[in-house]
């Protein structure tokens, strides 16, 4: 998978699950997701589980932090690394 395709996939997930398929105008790929509480802890873990299954990767318990998840860009970079890049 290409990095841009991965980012599209993360953005689509956020769009569908937080905003009902319509990204607001004031949202961008750097908008904080966890620290701003756009994503609550249930949604955060659900998003991780979704991409673990989709990409066949595993996130360790201590990796589930805002440092790795806080925006579309940050989460994409984290997953990209997990894919061995």
């Amino acid at each position: 998978m290409e990095r841009e395709a991965l980012k599209d996939s993360v953005r689509n997930y956020v769009s569908e699950n937080i905003f009902g398929n319509e990204l607001p105008k004031d949202f961008n790929d750097d908008t904080p997701l966890v620290s701003s509480r756009l994503l609550d802890s249930i949604m955060t873990l659900k998003m991780i589980s979704h991409f673990e299954d989709e990409l066949n990767v595993e996130c360790k318990a201590h990796e589930v932090t805002a440092d790795n998840l806080d925006s579309v860009n940050i989460f994409t970079a984290f997953l990209w690394k997990k894919l061995g890049n």
């Binding site: 905003f19 009902g20 607001p24 004031d26 949202f27 908008t31 701003s36 509480r37 756009l38």
Partner: peptide
């Protein structure tokens, strides 16, 4: 108002357990 703004505004005014999802 846009959703991101409204989420941040709510988090500034009320307890986080009350911030609306939509």
């Amino acid at each position: 108002y846009e959703t991101v703004f409204l989420k941040n505004y709510s988090a500034d005014k009320i307890h986080y357990s009350m911030v609306p999802d939509t």
